[in-house]
């Protein structure tokens, strides 16, 4: 489903963010990317989301070279991927409900489908009663749950979560990771970038370890080892 083939990202003159990365992710997998800050986890996700272009190598998604998708089809590609960020990246002037509904709106969904699906997903993330609050009126954990709801509302094929628990306390961290596991069990591929040792060790899923831009380990039931 997702293939990285000898991918490097070098910032001029010679600062390598990623070097010679190759791996393959199959549909329905839960893959954690671990590594210290600056190891290249976020760069790897940015390359997959086509926010950045690789200096060398190719990234494939469902058999298509991500970096050769024409601009006109870029929104279509991005609608197949849900993204969750450490800093939530919610639209500040939209309520929790509207932030989630926005994704369906850009896809041209009908109003009654939006009302039905958004209410459903808000219930899944336990925020039905906070639906009409703005991001500034929500706690960090609640914001991240809105971000996850937004990432899964359109039933994407894959969800990329970049340090989703970075700003959360242990209680909310467990909560968010539990949600991601639940989503994965329903069939969605999850890529989780994190440096939270406890999260990785408890998950017991595939772990790709990065160190200074290089892939140093890829284990089926990995542990946090840096």
């Amino acid at each position: 489903m997702i293939v990285f083939e000898k991918v490097s990202k070098i910032y001029p003159p010679d600062s390598a963010a990623l070097q010679d990365i190759s791996f393959h992710i199959t549909e329905g997998e839960f893959v954690s990317l671990v590594g210290k800050s600056g190891a290249g986890k976020s760069t790897l996700l940015e390359l997959f989301l086509r926010e950045k272009f690789p200096s060398v190598g190719t990234v494939f998604f469902q058999g298509e070279n991500v970096h050769q998708i024409p601009d006109s089809r870029l929104p279509e590609f991005r609608r197949k991927v849900g993204v969750v960020f450490q800093d939530y990246k919610l639209l500040p002037h939209k309520t929790a409900y509207e932030n989630i509904a926005y994704v369906m709106e850009v896809m041209g969904a009908r109003e009654q489908d939006i009302v039905r699906d958004v209410s459903e997903v808000l219930e899944i993330v336990g925020l039905l009663e906070r639906a009409h609050h703005y991001p500034a009126q929500l706690s960090g954990g609640e914001r991240q749950r809105v971000a996850i709801a937004r990432a899964l509302i359109h039933r994407p094929d894959v969800i990329c979560a970049d340090e989703p628990t970075g700003n959360l306390d242990p209680y909310h961290t467990r909560d968010i990771i539990g949600l991601l596991v639940k989503i994965n069990e329903l069939g969605t591929t999850i890529i989780l970038a994190t440096h939270n040792k406890e999260v990785i060790n408890r998950l017991g899923k595939r772990v790709i370890t990065l160190d200074e831009g290089r892939m140093v380990r890829d284990e089926e039931r990995g542990k946090f080892m840096i």
Binding site: E76, R79, V83, K89, L91, Y102, V103
Partner: peptide, 16 residues
């Protein structure tokens, strides 16, 4: 600009 980036990442078309 951050809002615009979010909109792009969730797949909004340029006109949207």
């Amino acid at each position: 600009r951050d809002e615009i980036e979010i909109m792009r990442l969730v797949g909004a078309s340029n006109w949207f």
